Simulated assay, not measured.
Amino acid sequence: MKRFSMLDELTFQNVSERSLSLQEVQDRIMQFMSQDPKALYHFVIGTDSQVHRGYTKFVTGIIIHRLGKGAWACYSQVAIPRELTSIKEKLVLETTLSQRVAGFFAEGPLTQMEELLLPHVYQGAMLYSYIDIDAGTEPVVNQTSLYVQEMVDRVEAMGMYSPRVKPYSYGASAYANRFTKQGMRQVM
């Protein structure tokens, strides 16, 4: 079972590839975007978690969405060897994992993505960058609503990403979520 690790130890996968480094993820994103540099893109990073017997599994998804024209996505999974019961602790760790991955892209790759689109801005090319937070603002429905503003403030402090929460945070609440349900042995 893979343990909670440092950023450079993360590997990503999707339905067709396994063991992608962050550099390889960046390469795949650039290849995908170069196929249509006149398009509108959403670059999304989001993390979700699920408590399993004896550990808590965290899945971080990276998505480059060419609006109306498809997407390329991958995910990484790590486990903390205990069952986290605090909603706040889970939400803080989810947001932290997303921020760590987002930090890699903020240190150069995000600029390269923007530069690829820059010559085509007048034809509609644009890149929006998001960190999706798996939390909602409706107190009756979401126990996470107490901590939303704190997580939003953390993401906004990064400067290069806009935070999104439920129901708009599909990177965390839909894409990453579907991989958290499986046990670690089932997906490795």
Rank of each mutant, 00 (worst) to 15 (best):
Q143H: 10
Y161A: 08
Q123V: 01
T60N: 09
E107P: 00
S49G: 10
Q99N: 12
Q77S: 05
L146D: 12
E138H: 06
I45P: 01
I62Q: 02
F43D: 05
V51G: 07
T137G: 07
A135H: 06
V59M: 05
S49P: 03
G108D: 09
S145H: 14
C74K: 02
T144K: 03
R100L: 07
L118Q: 15
S49Q: 06
P81V: 02
V59D: 01
Y161I: 05
K57C: 06
G61D: 07
I133Q: 04
I62L: 10
L93C: 00
L146A: 11
D153R: 15
R28K: 15
V101L: 05
Y168N: 15
P81K: 13
R28T: 03
F104E: 11
V92S: 06
S169T: 00
A135N: 05
L97A: 08
E150I: 08
A73G: 04
A106L: 07
K57D: 08
L40D: 09
N142K: 06
K88I: 02
L91H: 04
H52C: 10
G136Q: 04
T111C: 10
Q99M: 15
I131Y: 07
A106Q: 10
M126Y: 06
I64R: 00
I63W: 01
A39F: 01
K90R: 15
